[in-house]
Simulated scan of single mutants.
Amino acid sequence: MLTLTENASDIVTTLINKQVPSEDGGLRISGPTDEGFAISAVFVGEPGDTLVESGDAKVYLDGAASQVLDDKILDAQVTSEGAVQFQLAERPAQ
């Protein structure tokens, strides 16, 4: 299952609290397409979405994204311009 870094969890929580203040609000990742993954703030996931929770952060993954991101780590950072950038990394082998 997708894992969030502590930084990603904090940023997702802050972002969602500002954009969709809802108990079930979260980040939704769908795709991938030729352009990559679509990321949006949602009040609740869609039927069939996989929910990943890390602290107070909720991330909803559609079926395709859930399969592709199953062994990945999601990290995030805020740029000096205030934009959020997400990065995916491979989970280290155990």
Rank of each mutant, 00 (worst) to 15 (best):
P21M: 06
E53F: 13
Q67A: 12
A65Y: 01
D10M: 01
V78I: 10
G82H: 15
G31I: 09
G31K: 06
E35M: 12
L2P: 00
E35P: 03
D71P: 11
N7P: 08
A83G: 03
D34G: 11
A65L: 10
S80V: 10
S66I: 07
G26A: 00
G48Q: 10
A41Y: 02
E23I: 14
A8F: 09
A76I: 11
E23H: 15
L88F: 15
Q87A: 15
K72M: 15
A83H: 15
V78S: 09
E35H: 15
D70T: 12
L51I: 07
I73M: 09
G36M: 06
Q67F: 15
E6T: 06
P47L: 04
A41L: 11
L15C: 07
D10W: 11
L27N: 01
L69I: 10
Q94T: 15
L69F: 12
S22Y: 10
Q87M: 14
A76T: 02
A38Q: 11
G36W: 04
V84N: 09
D62F: 00
L27E: 02
D62V: 01
T79V: 03
K18Y: 08
T3R: 02
V12R: 02
I29A: 07
T5P: 00
G55V: 07
G36N: 06
V68M: 14
P92K: 03
G55H: 03
V52P: 00
V84H: 08
L61C: 04
N17T: 15
Q85V: 15
D24L: 08
S80M: 09
S66N: 11
P47D: 04
G31H: 06
K58G: 04
L15E: 03
M1V: 08
E53A: 15
V78C: 11
D10I: 04
K58V: 00
S22G: 12
Q85D: 04
E53R: 15
I39V: 14
K72H: 07
A64L: 05
E23K: 14
N7S: 13
E90H: 13
K18V: 11
G25K: 11
F37W: 11
S9M: 01
L69T: 00
Q87R: 12
E6P: 14
V84A: 08
V59Q: 03
A38I: 05
S22L: 09
D49S: 03
T5N: 01
G48H: 09
